[in-house]
Amino acid sequence: MSHESEDRILDVRDIYTYFRTEAGVVKALDGVSFDIRYNESVGVVGESGCGKTVTSRSILQILPKNGEVVDGQILYKGVDLLALTPSEMRTVRGKEIALLFQDPLSALNPVMSIREQMIDVIMLHKFLTEEEAEALAVEMMHAVGIPEADKRIFDYPHQYSGGMRQRILIARALALQPSLLIADEPTTALDVTIQAQVLDIIKRMREEHKLSMMLITHNLGVVAENTDRIHVFYGGRVVESGPTREIFKDPHHPYTIALLESIPSFKKGKGRLATIPGSVPQLIDPPKGCRFHPRCAYVTEMCKKRPPAVKIKTDHYVACHHVDRVIKRDINADYDPNLGYAIDNL
């Protein structure tokens, strides 16, 4: 695979991120590997606690104090980020890799004007004078569709709406001309019509700036419309990855299949939704073997013992022992999707 590595901007190889808590070690990421290519938009999909956010924080090394990447490699343009010094890492953050948060309010300092917050970052990374930095900031704000940017730059965060704040963060992130944008649930806190606006801007900016993007979200609709490839996370591991269209049309992992069938959608009628029994695993004491096995319709004894190997089918990776059975939808005879409701996940 080494010959391929040249077209990858980010190559995450087998990383393990653990958190020490009072109740024990939380294995938030347990051998996660995936990649992002140049100019590509990659979706990271999963439910709460699957390790989506921890992945982005591991890449940028902004984990909370009790968390640590204990093993693995994160190659960004061929350089292992885990081997960099803290000061080298600071230049990577922002200038090379930009991060967009879910909550745009907490990412802005409420007592500083937008102008101060924008030009501070720009001057720090781009060695511009204050006037040049301000001109760039206004230009970027204009580009993300903030009306009267030259006047509104003097306003404070609370004077902007949620959608506008997210635009400001996009403008600030892109002013530094990063190569990779990590967007962590960028529209989850926003209303649908504002979400559409923000996603539209991100799409436009991505095309203009030749940006690669890692879009982390639980919203499968957002992923379907905005990404080229998808990595599906479950319980701190990647269970399936492949081109967006293929994942939606021809999913191979039982979890992906169940997830797609469980979302109410326009095409389906009023009938019952498919469900997955039980709930997402606790990562302090995760299920042995394949982490999805307690909820899986295809489970066998093997799944309970061994974590599944990654199988390859041209650009489509599936972590499942029973791909051939899954393709035939050969469900265990005694599988009951309603069984797990009452069962404790503690």
Binding site: P277, G278, P281, D285, P287, H293, P294, C296, V299, T300, E301, N332, D334, Y335, D336, L339, G340, I343, D344, N345
Partner: peptide, 8 residues
């Protein structure tokens, strides 16, 4: 998890 599927 105290849950096991009935496969066994």
């Amino acid at each position: 998890m105290t849950y096991e599927t009935k496969t066994s």
